[in-house]
Design a protein around this nucleic acid. Sequence first.
DNA 1: CAATAGATCATCT
DNA 2: GATGATCTATTGC
Length: 193
Amino acid sequence: MNTLPRTFYSRPTAEVARDLLGKILVHGDTAGRIVEVEAYLGLVDLASHASKGRTPRTQVMFGPPGHAYVYFIYGMYECFNVVTESDGTPGAVLVRALEPVAGIERMFSRRPAVHREQDLCSGPGKLTLAMDITRRHNGRDLTHGDLRVEKPAKRSMFLVGVSPRIGIRHCTDWPLRFFVQGSAFVSKSPLNR
DNA sequence: CAATAGATCATCT
DNA sequence: GATGATCTATTGC
């Protein structure tokens, strides 16, 4: 119905990243409004997994757009990305933070240590826990099924903040992080203003 | 407050 | 064998 079509993802990665702000990530009966993302490019972007070329791990980034790329990091956490660009061209958008909009009680039960709603999904490792997204979703088609991205019923107005990406060691000055300015649900960072 | 250590493993050298 | 698109608890001012 309101699920984003594949053409939405088949565009330059930074454009898709910015346009994902305000969209709704749905998994089963939990859902959240996307408030923070980062773009990861192809061979020239040394911060991107795809800069190493096509490997078993990165093959999804080289595949058709509109699919999930979920990877395991720091021996503990999983990060959820959306694949962009046309088939054969690597690119992905890391979803870094969500504003919970549905299934909030379920999110709290998956994250027992959290007591404030704004701490539920304010980071890439946090939102995968709260939404129950794991490596089993790697390669999953996001244009249909129980894991998908939707256009919100009501359009909202917000300012888009831009900053360098967080937690990387290469290309640290590229302005590829986008977030909803002033949102309390964005991950904690000094770059938010 | 800010800085740091520890948890813990898939991936690549 | 080292590293990493992280998070939390703890220590130190």
